[in-house]
Design a protein around this nucleic acid. Structure first.
Lengths: 191, 191
DNA sequence: TGCGATATTAACAGATCTGTCACCTACGTA
DNA sequence: TACGTAGGTGACAGATCTGTTAATATCGCA
């Protein structure tokens, strides 16, 4: 299997898992929808779980790169970029393909603390939090990790409510809270 | 089946679905773990989905009654009770049985907008938001619905992160944000 | 042309899924 | 005692699940 075909297999699997759920998506369906025979899939991924992990890894890369790019495009300063998280996710909510956060859904279906899928989902969230903490640090906030974790609370809350209600409005609620939060949180040099 | 046995069946099913997930919990396991034969189960619930809906209904009643009681116990004024949401859920996160929000998980596995399970999950969230809005109104906030929705964002974000990270700390993050939010949001008579 | 590696098809194993069927048991009431 | 009802048992249908096997086909490359 060429690198391209393998990548295509993982990408198409990603969408199937994302849209249908993990348990609800069988390997026969994956084979049918990706055009790759089940035998070939199992030559490259020993188990369904390995394929799910590969899909999550791709999703992690794609989503972080998309979000960080979007934040940079929408705002200049570190502080404004933190607020732009919520403009970016509002755009995401408005896409037809939006179905919630793949990692929340993955860890909901495989929630054992030591399960590889849950750990990989947690790692994704940690990478986001790290990026937010870097921005908070650049913006001069006294306790960047705490601020980053609080932005994560806002982001995850907005995603969950947007997915359940099929509405983009929670992004605006989260953004308004973030604005208050960014204004009232202590910075080293006030400006 | 007596009313008691039926209630016990639903309650035990609830815990199985909550802990294992919905697709991952088969009806044979439900029969085995509840002590009610599969035949009897299917005499009272025509499909697995009907049993899931009954479990969600019970969970809705139990959870709301627990949360609202806890909020009233922990705080006196409407404003303080809104903050006590986050003290209550922190207690919840610290319970061994905590596995995230059953409704988030349900709507993650059955996410079609018109699916009964998703609609019932959404209805639960709406009932919570309504209660918060009543408190916000009693506390004199100018736009109680908006404040209630924002508290929901905080609550859902904290639950998701607590479930994924197996930590109670997101409750404190959410509480700190709520505190700022409650202080900076417009009220009819400032006090 | 012919080799070697890889992919494909189709069937299969063995388990599990939802849901059903026929038959049996236990019990309250007449 | 006899009857109706409600529940239990265990097997079963038919589909689907993950994962495998064996034979066939395709393709790059020498």
């Amino acid at each position: 299997m060429s690198r391209n075909k393998r990548a295509e297999l993982v990408e198409r699997s990603l969408w199937l898992f994302y849209r249908n759920g993990f348990h609800a998506t069988g390997m026969d369906l994956v084979a049918k929808e990706t055009g790759v025979s089940k035998t070939s899939i199992y030559k490259h991924f020993r188990t369904k779980e390995e394929l799910i992990l590969a899909a999550l890894q791709l999703r992690d890369t794609n989503f972080r790169s998309w979000l960080f790019d979007r934040m940079e495009t929408l705002a200049d300063t570190p502080k404004a970029q933190m607020l732009a998280i919520f403009d970016a996710i509002e755009e995401w909510f408005l896409e037809d393909s939006f179905q919630g956060c793949m990692f929340i859904k993955a860890s909901a279906e495989y929630q054992a603390e030591d399960h590889a899928i849950n750990q990989q989902s947690m790692a994704h969230k940690q990478l986001l939090a790290d990026h937010f903490a870097n921005l908070a640090s650049a913006a001069g906030y006294v306790d960047p990790e705490t601020l980053a974790n609080r932005l994560m609370v806002l982001k995850e809350g907005a995603i969950v409510l947007a997915a359940m209600s099929h509405s983009a409005k929670p992004a605006q609620d989260a953004r308004a809270i973030a604005q208050v939060l960014l204004e009232t949180t202590a910075r080293k040099q006030d400006a």
